[in-house]
Simulated assay, not measured.
Amino acid sequence: MMITKKVITISDYIICLVLPLAMVAAPFYIITGRCEFTVAYLFTVIIVFIGLVLIDYLIRISISKSVQKRQSNFIIWNTIINSKYSVLWLTLIILVFWFPIIFALYPGTLINDTWGQLSEYIRYYNIGGTYYGRLSDHHPFVDTLIMGSIITPFGEKLQNWQLGFLCILFFKLS
């Protein structure tokens, strides 16, 4: 494998630009509920963008050099990837790394906006309508249906909301 001259692609630049646009705007939006584009905002976005591009470049160069020097260190990884059970192995690896977080946050967490989404589904499920008799498009409709149809049966039928939250957590991890 050779190190190519073009280390960072256009998609890297786009990601490195979109991330600071969101990261810099988020704290102000959370506090005030609005987004303002000021000179300070744009300056901060540019600084974070440059930092992310540099980090991306350094990581990619490091990985490229590492792969060239130590191709034999990837024998286990290549065995996993080329196995007919590669999806199962990768799922187990991801689950092992996520397990401490799942354990710490058991049964799962819902932020205030997600509680609103769940209550919208429950209201629609129980009485056939929500605010003013219609579903809101504030949340993705399919996401609301999937989340509600997994959590609600556990909560209402089995009186175990925690198990429903745990099931939606595993559903979203998969």
Rank of each mutant, 00 (worst) to 15 (best):
T4Y: 10
S11G: 06
T9M: 06
L169P: 00
G108R: 06
Y29R: 10
E120H: 03
K6Q: 05
I122F: 08
D113Q: 07
A104W: 07
W115V: 15
S83F: 13
W115P: 00
Q117E: 09
T44E: 13
S11F: 04
V24M: 05
W77T: 15
Y29M: 11
V7F: 01
D137S: 13
K5M: 04
N160I: 14
F49Y: 10
A26S: 11
N78E: 14
Q117F: 03
K65R: 13
L105P: 00
T114G: 09
L54N: 01
L90N: 06
D143R: 03
S11V: 11
Q159E: 15
I59A: 06
N112S: 15
I127V: 14
I81T: 08
L54V: 03
Q159C: 12
Q117W: 02
I102A: 09
I75S: 10
K6F: 03
M23Y: 06
P20R: 07
L19C: 10
D12S: 02
G33Y: 07
K69R: 13
N73L: 14
N73G: 12
I111K: 03
F103H: 05
L52E: 02
V24H: 04
I63K: 08
E120M: 09
N126Y: 12
T4E: 06
F154L: 12
G129N: 04
Y132P: 00
G133T: 04
K69C: 11
L19Q: 03
Y29E: 14
I63N: 07
I30P: 01
S136Q: 01
Y57S: 00
R123I: 12
G133M: 03
N78G: 10
F154Y: 12
Y131A: 02
A40Y: 15
F74G: 10
G116P: 01
Y125C: 03
W161C: 11
Y41K: 02
W89N: 06
W89A: 14
Q68E: 15
R134S: 07
G51V: 00
S136E: 02
I46F: 09
L135E: 14
R123E: 13
R60P: 00
E156S: 06
P153W: 13
